[in-house]
Each structure stands twice: as C-alpha cells, then as structure tokens.
C-alpha cells in the first residue's frame, strides 16, 4: 500500500524541506533526495522499516501519527506528504489541518472508495470490497476512514483547504486514461496537492 504517484516529484521544489508521514521503507524520500536534493524527514512506527530508512541515510522519527504533530513548528516544512495513510488515521480532518500547519503545502494520496471495482463489490454483490486496493476484510483493516474524491473535496472546503492540483493513478502509481477522464469512478488512488487558503 505504499506506491506513490508519478506526480509527486513534480510538486516538490529543489532543496525543499519535506516531511513524509508514514514514510515506510523510505523509498519516496530517498527518490526525492536524489532527484531534488530535499532535506527529508520521515515519521514511521515500524522499527524494521526505520532500519531500512537508516541504511538509506534518511532521518526518521518513530512516531504515531494519531498523536499529532505537536513536536513540529508552524510552517517548518515546505511540503508534508502522506501517501496511502489518511484512511488509516483516527481523525483525517485533524491530520490534514496539522499537515498544513507544519507545512506550506501538503500532498495526500488515498484509495478512492468510489473506484468502480468497489462499487461493483458493494453495489452489486452486496459485500464490503476486498481487492488489491483494499486487501483487508472489514473487521480487521487499518482502513477505517474510506472516502472518495467527492467526499475529500467537501472536507477540504469545510477546512478551508485549497486544492492546488489533483490527479489519479493506479496502484502502481501510474496514470490511466480512464482515471484521468473520470477520476471518481475510474481513479484507484486519489492524489491531491493542497495548501491553506490565504
């Protein structure tokens, strides 16, 4: 569940200060260090993944995202990234607000629950979707706050968050033409670039 969109590097400035929430094995941060010479910091809970990050020379803090980001200053980062984690956070609304408190911009990706395969599984078969995008059964899943492109945009409006860019990709982080034309139905992964309205 940690594939990142092909668009993310386009939205990062050279030498940017980047915080990656739930950085996993550090693949994205390491890529951005190489391509954009960023000053990266990752937050991750799993010590085995932290070890992989350390081996890559990345800085990582073991921190539970549900405990907030109170150890970071306002606007300490240029960009705060959260890939495929928002749906697993206890309060996605608070997380988004915190991301844009500590960062000037935020990049968020999450599984689009309105993706056609989910609609078929739920709408026609009458089951909570279980598929490569959402592999866990409903009673044992980290994905407790599933949403769609539309739901997410409504939340942004409520929180006064401005959408600078949006895109969609498949699970391997690649663009699909159907997803681009009709994201809420054919986009597997939603990708947003956000900032706080001035």
């Amino acid at each position: 569940m940690n594939s990142h969109s092909y668009r993310i590097p386009d939205w990062i400035a050279n030498n940017a200060r980047v915080l990656d929430l739930g950085c996993g094995d550090g693949r994205l941060l390491a890529q951005l260090v190489n391509s954009h010479a960023i000053h990266g910091l990752g937050l991750e809970l799993d010590p085995d993944k932290i070890a992989i990050c350390l081996d890559l020379g990345l800085s990582v803090i073991q921190q539970d995202l549900n405990r907030g980001l109170s150890n970071f200053n306002d606007q300490q980062f240029d960009t705060v990234i959260m890939t495929q984690t928002l749906q697993a956070i206890r309060r996605p609304d608070l997380a988004l607000s915190e991301m844009l408190r500590v960062g000037h911009e935020a990049i968020v990706t999450f599984p689009n629950f309105a993706y056609i395969r989910n609609r078929i599984q739920l709408g026609l078969a009458g089951h909570m979707p279980v598929n490569p995008q959402l592999p866990n059964p409903w009673y044992d899943t980290p994905n407790i706050h599933l949403s769609t492109f539309r739901d997410f945009e409504e939340l942004c409006q409520t929180l006064g968050i401005h959408i600078l860019d949006k895109d969609t990709s498949n699970l391997s982080g690649k663009r699909t033409w159907l997803g681009t034309v009709w994201p809420n139905l054919f986009g597997e992964v939603a990708v947003y670039r956000l900032t706080k309205e001035p």
């Binding site: 000053h39 990582v60 803090i61 073991q62 150890n71 970071f72 300490q76």
Partner: peptide
C-alpha cells in the same frame, strides 16, 4: 529529539 527537530538538524529516533 524535539530540540534537534526544532533546530532543523538531521535526527533519527526510535523508542
């Protein structure tokens, strides 16, 4: 750790 983060220094931490 928090002080190093505040100072913008490269720090890794695990509990």
């Amino acid at each position: 750790v928090d002080a190093l983060i505040q100072a913008g220094k490269p720090v890794s931490y695990a509990r």
